[in-house]
Design a protein around this nucleic acid. Structure first.
Lengths: 247, 247
DNA sequence: AGAATAGTGTCTGTAAGACAATATGAA
DNA sequence: TTCATATTGTCTTACAGACACTATTCT
């Protein structure tokens, strides 16, 4: 397996003649102690399409699949790095992003001591990757991911399922107006469940997180559906229901 | 405010003549790019005593209060650092520890670019600090903590309350045998609630996380209480109830 | 017996799954 | 009218709070 920096804009700002461009990289701080070679960020980008929960993966030169990621510049917050990478891969400016967990086993990256902070991002269903190497993969059945990215993806799936009915996390997938059928398909795909339409309508309203806009939409041959939107775009907790979510 | 390294055993293994011992520290990796000056760990150590939820804090030379923490050595996992610091401050070998979140704003530490991974640890009620500078503080009403440690502590309280009835997280506080009254006081303190004894007994058994040992204990003048223990010491999820927890 | 604490039982309001019934559009 | 989808209503089981009641020890 070949080593290389992620395709990262930070790197283009770096000195033109690095002293030792080949990994493994090491670092020493000004007090004389060993320091991490870099701080990385990996982003689990999720969406729901065709009733399936999908994750964004990048095909690497060696053919392996990996999560989008990059290095944190000294001048930015890791969340800034995460949204920057997200913008580079999808063109999105704003969506739902939250920190997931940090993976810092010294052996996790063959390029050196590189802790990574994993983030979770949810994006609209019609998001198309702008990076030619990026593609949507099924979040549960796919070719194995490189590094510890399988573990990171599993952590993301646990998180999104755990918060599904307790927060407005789905606002990342449905940022605008949607019908309750739209929402039900998204929730069903994430929970790996098949929610009853009537019960779903009752319970999504009971969370207090959505508002009816007053207008309707008709995509199909049936009765027009009322449109809703999430009241708040910032992360928020709802009333909480104990709905069944397969794990 | 004076800057100084945490009292950390790693440092005693370091070179005897650091080139620049004064902060702010900087670091450059072998590829020529800026690197974090160090990777830190901070631990929120919680317990329940006298019906109150307490956190472990260290008095620093400048009088400020801070969470126990230290630097991650290149050869160890951050969780290893967290348990090592916990052992240095309390003498405990094993208890409930889980990762909380990572705080990596480049401005968070005046000593340089030092991301910190925060951990949550729960320890038995009779744990006495072995470090003379350490003491128990009330988790909700206390003198302000240094750095971003207030924020870290708040994150820890949210986490422990959120998982209270859904996991065996309390096993850290009650690792051995306990009566249901013991458990009720612990749960009530964490949830900032006053659970009914009868309902509590019914619901704690319904989680499936505790087992009756068959023996009894009598501390007071009343009927002897049956003893229970958590079936599993490793982190585990229970059946889940929707009990009320004040937030 | 009386006090003190442990533990059980019952009642009530609410939550959530299942599914029937009704509403509103197009063809 | 018939079809398709949306939306509302009803029934049932389970959960959680409140609180009354019984049980077991000591003094």
């Amino acid at each position: 397996m070949g080593y290389y920096w992620h395709n990262d804009k930070i790197m283009s700002r770096a000195p033109s003649k690095p002293t030792s461009p080949k990994p493994p990289w090491t670092a020493t701080n000004s007090a004389g102690y060993p320091a991490p070679a870099a701080l990385a960020v990996d982003v689990v980008v999720l969406t729901v399409r065709d009733h399936k929960l999908l994750a964004l993966a990048l095909e690497r030169p060696d053919g392996a699949l990996a999560l989008p990621g990059g290095f944190v510049a000294q001048t930015e917050s890791p969340e800034g790095t995460a949204t920057r990478k997200l913008n580079e891969k999808t063109g999105l400016e704003q969506t739902y992003v939250e920190q997931l967990a940090t993976f810092a086993d010294p052996q996790r990256d063959p390029r050196g001591w590189i802790p990574t902070i994993a983030y979770l991002a949810l994006v609209p269903a019609d998001t198309e990757p702008t990076d030619p190497g990026a593609r949507w993969i099924n979040s549960t059945s796919h070719r194995a991911l490189a590094f510890d990215h399988e573990q990171i993806l599993r952590t993301a799936l646990d998180r999104v399922r755990g918060k599904l009915w307790w927060s407005n996390i789905v606002v990342g997938i449905l940022p605008g107006e949607f019908t309750l059928a739209d929402a039900r398909h998204v929730y069903s795909a994430i929970a790996d469940n098949d929610y009853d339409a009537g019960t779903f309508a009752r319970d999504i309203r009971a969370t207090g997180l959505v508002t009816a806009t007053g207008s309707t939409r008709q995509d199909t041959g049936g009765r027009p559906a009322a449109l809703y939107r999430f009241t708040e775009h910032q992360p928020e907790w709802g009333a909480g229901r104990r709905k069944r979510v397969r794990t």
